[in-house]
């Protein structure tokens, strides 16, 4: 089947999609966007997290056809050519990236959390961060520096919003 959707602001169209393919497979293998990762393909790790119409979801659990006409946002759409997104920069500065396989999904989940928290008026607290990121497994870092990175990103994003 043919699939048309908007990915990172650009309309994408691909043909010959097998109906059983996931959005993750389509992004990675058909659209040349392998940034979203394939760690478990069963919704248990969060590595494939993308925005679907503004909501973070596991792209491995979205049937390709379900994305028809939708807006998809992936890690590849976060930075500009010149500058990293503040969440990306914070992950680097905090040392929250080791092997990096969980990183794309965590960046999307973090961006969603911080954006929502700041919109609600306050940066997220530790307990909130932990609950919000509990769907993103990381095997390298023990999560401490990820927590640091989220707080750093929230601080910077709230300062730049002032």
């Amino acid at each position: 089947m043919r699939l048309t959707c908007t990915v990172n602001g650009t309309e994408q169209q691909v043909d010959d999609v097998w109906e059983g393919e996931s959005l993750l497979y389509v992004l990675r293998e058909r659209m040349g966007l392998p940034g979203s990762k394939n760690a478990c393909e069963q919704g248990e790790c969060g590595s494939c997290t993308v925005y679907l119409d503004g909501t973070p979801v596991c792209s491995c659990l979205v049937a390709a056809g379900q994305a028809e006409g939708r807006e998809v946002g992936t890690v590849e759409g976060m930075a500009t050519d010149e500058a990293l997104h503040p969440v990306q920069q914070a992950f680097l500065d905090a040392g929250a990236v080791q092997c990096g396989f969980c990183t794309p999904g965590l960046l999307v989940a973090t961006d969603d959390l911080v954006t929502r928290s700041l919109a609600a008026g306050a940066p997220p607290e530790d307990a909130e961060i932990r609950e919000a990121l509990a769907g993103n497994l990381c095997r390298c870092t023990g999560y401490e520096k990820i927590l640091d990175a989220v707080k750093l990103a929230a601080t910077r994003m709230s300062e730049s919003a002032r």
Binding site: P34, E76, M78, A79, L84, G95, V97, P104
Partner: peptide
């Protein structure tokens, strides 16, 4: 020193290619 990873930027941009990303 706390030097930064040379592969860090690629990794946060989603551009660092893992084995499964080869094409």
């Amino acid at each position: 020193d706390d030097a930064a990873r040379p592969d860090g930027t690629l990794k946060v941009r989603g551009e660092f290619a893992y084995g499964s990303d080869l094409w």
